[in-house]
Nucleic acid binder design. Structure first.
Lengths: 193, 193, 193, 193
DNA sequence: TATGAATGAGACTTCATTCAT
DNA sequence: GATGAATGAAGTCTCATTCAT
């Protein structure tokens, strides 16, 4: 009784292919084959390669910024918010390693119009981080840093690294969250007693 | 009486073009035009587009890892080494913004053989950082973290973020170095007195 | 209680679209949208794009040749026949501007088999004109020209020109008929008294 | 010692193919094969299919309007000018039957920008005819007609018909010229003595 | 050394047509 | 009768690469 969800199949296939390659080395043919449909079918469901890619990438970005936002408005301390965001970030990055790869493999993109949209999302996330940091400064748990630059660094830490490791040492996500949180909060210097 | 250094011109042109675009959106024609030579000339000096790109990218990576290495073997404390490396990293990233862009815009690459070489360089840098961290742990100035993961994070912090800012708040490189060093060493938590 | 005349709607829509574009720039999708039906419906009523187009074009051609024929067999002088045919031609061309455009925009066509059919209709019209001219020669009102070539020229005059003008000077159809008739009958030379 | 004139070969091949088919039924592949070069070579010499077609069509149109202009400024009577133009038109149309076919087969075209250029050339020719007719009216050899409409008709007569016949009855171009001239000047009515 | 014409594989995309529902 | 998803052939165009000069 259930209809075939071809569009879903295509998106799944595209996720696979785009995460292993990048926008330019991925061809519509590759996606069609992975999805088990014809090239024409791709164009029935999406107007262009870019539109298909957009849907994937923007969905991915949304997954982050929307959740960041949710944490940001909770009625908890900045410290807890940072922990939650890192926890969420690491978990999602691990579970959606493919999406994360698409994000990573396509920093640079196609049409500038599109690029702007991506940057906008990026800036949204940075703004959210910034506000949390400002809250923390007011609460006197975060030191009086430049919030914007610090936000950029936190995002860099969150996005750049995790997928690379998992296969190696941190099979244990919990440890990875702790590690990341500690790095961001305390840095690497040994506290002298 | 000095001959035209055509190969040099080509490399300079390629640096310009590759830093504004990426590997796949850059065509040999664009490079030839920028260099003021014909496409054929490109192929006299380089066997392929990939080889030309390789020279640029690998040179860029070398610039970092070789200097990291130099710092690593100096007879100074780990703490000082970290400072020097960050200082060097930020300065070079700023001065060689174009090369840095190539690195950023082409995380993902072409042939897997090439990709391995890039990863190898990357791992070299990580190893150097790791050793410095281990030195620091022994010296008891760095806390007892997982050195490899910490090294990855330091590299992420160093590479991902700087170009974005410069135009904005940190016209002053010194401040940027301080900021980065402080972030890595102490994190963002406020020290209670 | 009248049923929806879907086939009629399709033909009307096709007339609109084909008259603004031409066979190759008109897609089945465009016609389907204009008709407010799905592409599948088009294929229920017509076996192919060509068949749909054929119906339109051949209908258009028929409108002319059948009326020409009617005039041809009337019991009037050749002179009167020519006037009637020009009158009819101009009027119909004006009223059925869309059909006329289809005729004009698709001189060259698709399958040669089809093309032959179009040429056949064309030749039918020429033959009718030829006979009228021969009648006129016998009646000594038409000069002793080559009737076939003259017929071709009359058809050219009739079909090629009218649509272009209407918007300009001849809002008045009567004048246009007079002008065309005079051009064909008397040419442009001034009669000397 | 003579170099291969590849661009010339391509144009010749394109003329062949475009005159037998039309813009949309002619593919770049067909032209490449006819010219004995690869598809890529077409794009070395022309930026697009449209540009290639443009060169052919606009050249063709120029051939006419430029020669019309030359006749128009000669110091002869309007009557003689008309004869010369018809003579030239018929001769060229016959010799360049292929170009003439391209003109005929592509009344409707591609980009509207292009279409405007074609219409401009068309209007140029009409203007030239108009001026000649006005001269004739002043000289009292042409009757007092509407010059613009008459010009349109003359052009229609000139362009629509000739190629079709030659194969048939008028192997003799001279006769064809006479016939056309007579049709335009005197129409078909028999002069009564 | 240098050029630029030529090549051909492969990319994106369109669209007439089919067919299960 | 009608729908719309699916197909696949065919078309335009790009571009790394080669090669005769």
């Amino acid at each position: 009784m259930k209809k075939k969800d071809t569009k879903g199949e295509i998106l799944k296939a595209a996720l696979n292919i785009f995460s292993q390659n990048n926008y330019h080395t991925t061809s519509m043919m590759m996606i069609a084959e992975e999805a088990g449909v014809s090239k024409g079918t791709l164009y029935w469901h999406f107007n262009s390669k870019e539109e298909l890619f957009r849907e994937l990438l923007l969905n991915g970005l949304d997954m982050f910024s929307s959740n960041f936002e949710k944490v940001a408005v909770e009625d908890i301390s900045a410290d807890e918010k940072i922990y939650k965001i890192i926890k969420f970030g690491v978990e999602v990055l691990v579970e959606n390693a493919k999406t994360a790869n698409i994000l990573r493999n396509n920093v640079e993109l196609i049409s500038s119009e599109f690029q702007e949209k991506v940057e906008e999302k990026h800036n949204q996330s940075i703004d959210i981080f910034k506000k949390i940091l400002e809250q923390g400064i007011k609460e006197e748990t975060i030191k009086d840093c430049n919030p914007r630059n610090t936000a950029v660094m936190m995002l860099a830490v969150l996005f750049t690294s995790h997928a690379d490791w998992l296969l190696e040492e941190f099979a244990d996500i919990e440890k990875q969250i702790e590690f990341t949180y500690d790095f961001v909060m305390n840095g690497i210097r040994r506290k002298e007693n």
